[in-house]
Simulated scan of single mutants.
Amino acid sequence: MLDLRSDTVTKPSEKMRKAMYEAEVGDDVYGEDPTVNKLEKLAANILGKEDALFVTSGTQGNQIAGLVHCKPGQEVIMEAQAHIFLYEAAALSAFAGVQIKTLEGDNGAMKLGDVEAAIRGDDIHQPETGLICIENTHNKAGGAVIPLENMEKIYQLSKKLGIPVHLDGARLFNASVASGIPVKEFAKYTYSVQFCLSKGLGAPVGSMIAGSSEFISQARKWRKRLGGGLRQVGVLAAPGIIALEENIKHLEQDHENAKQLAEGLQNIEGITIENKVETNIILLDITKSNTTTEHFVNYLKEQNILAGPFGPNIIRFVTNNSITKKDIDNVLVAVQKIVNR
């Protein structure tokens, strides 16, 4: 079964499994797990931040950032199709007590003028703007890379007004590999960053958040409040170290496979590619195929291929480190058969 539903389906390599078995551990709540400490220092250095913290998931990392940066009753600005808004169960509202203001973006990127206009003034009837969130790469925009210039402009505005910027960089390393820009450059225009170890980087679990030492000190307490204070967690941190030291370079192959798949799909009459494929996500529009996403996905499954419905007429394919070029050819043959039906 070829699984193209997400890059979250990646499984740890044998080297990762061995590292988990051999990991030196201690009580991380006491700050005594040497493997976790090594991972956190590595992540902070890569991002150019003062400190970093291992968290159980990207969603937990994003929520911790919101809880640190915001006060109840404030408002958070983000793009209308942001993962935090669509796929995190209204956690910012539930936990931080804030409301979200969404802006329509261009390929996932918010326009500077729109952000500036959305920032609240000194009005007793309105909430204060407590945080601006950017997502890079942008999931719903098909893995689009948010331009560095766009991030810099929003950051300079936020800095002038004293409003922090948080980067949901779940696939930040995909953005870096696709653009050739070091992750440190993207992170430079943020107050805090979250990225996933468990997507294209191939670790079995976990994410990192990074920022100033003060931010991480507060984040550590919020992680504890959310039940994320773990003990001998070096067994989970060990594959994260391998992910950062060895697996970033493999993302380029994922991107090449995605482009190969997109080019092949473009040649099949009756379907179209909705997004510009920059990284590892392909959004397939089946509107003209005279079937539903449910049926299309089921037909794919009959051909031993898993894909994900991503809207009324959209199916998402996500290449990952378990997919080969030969697999891509098999997917194209299967899709052609389905369309011929």
Rank of each mutant, 00 (worst) to 15 (best):
260 Q>E: 14
103 L>P: 00
152 E>C: 04
59 T>R: 14
301 K>D: 09
224 K>L: 13
171 R>C: 13
176 S>I: 11
70 C>L: 13
196 C>M: 15
235 V>M: 08
47 L>D: 07
146 I>Q: 01
141 A>F: 06
115 V>L: 04
208 M>D: 13
129 T>H: 04
140 K>L: 14
78 M>N: 01
175 A>Y: 01
107 N>S: 09
134 I>Y: 01
5 R>T: 13
341 R>Y: 02
254 D>L: 14
147 P>M: 03
44 A>V: 06
239 P>H: 06
12 P>D: 06
99 Q>R: 13
268 I>M: 11
128 E>M: 11
228 G>R: 08
304 N>E: 13
128 E>H: 10
12 P>K: 04
315 I>K: 02
231 R>D: 10
257 N>R: 15
215 F>S: 06
7 D>R: 10
9 V>L: 11
191 Y>G: 02
203 A>K: 08
322 S>H: 12
187 A>N: 10
177 V>A: 06
234 G>V: 04
259 K>Y: 09
49 K>V: 06
154 I>L: 06
282 I>A: 03
319 T>E: 11
183 V>Y: 01
157 L>R: 05
173 F>W: 11
205 V>H: 14
240 G>H: 07
163 I>Q: 00
322 S>L: 12
303 Q>H: 14
315 I>Y: 04
209 I>D: 13
19 A>F: 05
5 R>A: 10
113 G>P: 01
176 S>H: 09
262 A>G: 05
302 E>Q: 08
159 K>M: 09
121 G>H: 11
216 I>R: 01
7 D>E: 12
190 T>R: 01
32 E>Q: 14
179 S>T: 05
191 Y>P: 00
308 G>W: 13
65 A>Q: 14
240 G>A: 06
136 N>W: 03
175 A>M: 06
98 V>H: 10
70 C>N: 11
266 Q>F: 11
300 L>P: 02
148 L>T: 02
182 P>F: 05
119 I>P: 00
109 A>H: 00
105 G>I: 01
3 D>P: 00
82 A>W: 02
219 A>G: 13
68 V>C: 09
138 H>W: 04
133 C>H: 03
297 V>S: 11
197 L>H: 10
69 H>K: 08
303 Q>L: 08
86 L>K: 15
213 S>Q: 14
130 G>T: 06
